[in-house]
């Protein structure tokens, strides 16, 4: 894990990838894909799992006639099967400048989580869409499919250039327009947007599928180790705040963090988004293998 934690090390090692291959993203909703797959879809079609019958009409595939019913009722019925389709998993990765800050670094942590979730999704046959945004949504990467695409995904994430400002709402509106219903949307962000996160969350509602939020903050953002008279410079806006770090100011900051998180929880509940608060102080593999399984995001 130490090796994986350093900036130059690969985001994921082989051992971890092997463990990811045994996991599956757990969706509460039935998905619809373009091809018949292993996942359930509400669309009834030709698949292995029986769903219903319909009256035969000319042109129907005679291979799906239910001869048993014909023997009993002498009527022609066609067997309808629940069509197994591949799921769309959207990895929405915040690459703004605020994600480049923190100790341990938020940006690497975020990419590791995204890589792990993507690898799990690809290993279980899902189609993975990587969406990276900062001030705006960057051009979409092609959707990836199949376990063979895992390394490609990781390679893409490792080479991702960091961004500058943040515009969560604007960026995710672009995503929402292209996101089919029933998808799993996994937003990985610190949500530190001066314009707020409400508009952003509104774009990824759980009503359209499964919406997960990995709210990532650096350990130094949750429990700052700063002291003295400082000029705090905003990494995105280039604005600053002069602060004398007294005990009471630090307490006020801790209260502000907690209020921010509580506000976020309230909005997640409102938009049916499942939040997971993650600190970079916690190793990402612990987040994947323990926390997400405890939240039943992974099985």
């Amino acid at each position: 894990m130490n090796e994986a934690g350093s900036e130059k090390a690969p985001l994921l090692d082989e051992e971890f990838l092997a463990r990811c291959a045994k996991l599956v993203l757990f969706s509460r909703t039935v998905i619809q894909g373009r091809v018949r797959g292993e996942k359930r879809s509400r669309r009834r079609g030709i698949s292995t799992e029986f769903a219903d019958h319909k009256d035969y009409t000319p042109g129907d595939d005679l291979r799906h006639l239910d001869w048993n019913i014909f023997g009993r009722l002498e009527k022609l019925f066609i067997k309808l099967f629940e069509e197994e389709e591949e799921r769309n998993v959207f990895l929405l990765l915040d690459a703004s400048a605020s994600m480049q800050i923190g100790e341990p670094n938020k940006w690497r942590h975020a990419r590791q989580i995204a890589a792990a979730l993507g690898a799990i999704a690809l290993s279980s046959g899902d189609r993975v869409h990587l969406r990276v945004f900062d001030e705006k949504m960057r051009p979409f990467y092609p959707a990836l499919r199949g376990a063979r695409s895992v390394l490609r995904l990781i390679d893409t994430l490792e080479k991702l250039p960091p961004g500058k400002g943040t515009s969560l709402g604007r960026s995710l509106r672009a995503h929402a327009a292209a996101c089919p219903p029933g998808s799993i949307q996994i937003l990985i962000s610190d949500l530190l947007d001066p314009q707020g996160f409400e508009d952003a969350l509104r774009q990824v509602p759980g009503s359209r599928g499964d919406s997960w939020l990995v709210h990532l903050l650096a350990g130094s953002e949750i429990e700052p180790q700063l002291q003295g008279d400082l000029r705090l410079v905003d990494s995105e806006l280039q604005q600053h705040v002069d602060v004398t770090l007294t005990r009471s100011v630090l307490n006020a900051y801790r209260r502000a963090v907690e209020e921010f998180r509580q506000d976020l929880r309230n909005h997640c509940q409102r938009f049916r988004i499942q939040p997971l608060e993650v600190s970079t102080a916690v190793p990402f593999d612990q987040v994947i293998l323990e926390w997400m399984r405890q939240k039943r995001w992974l099985t």
Partner: peptide, 15 residues
Amino acid sequence: RQPQTVGSTLLWARA
């Protein structure tokens, strides 16, 4: 004051 870059001053301003 010693300059110190933070991800966002949003929470500090609130604090």
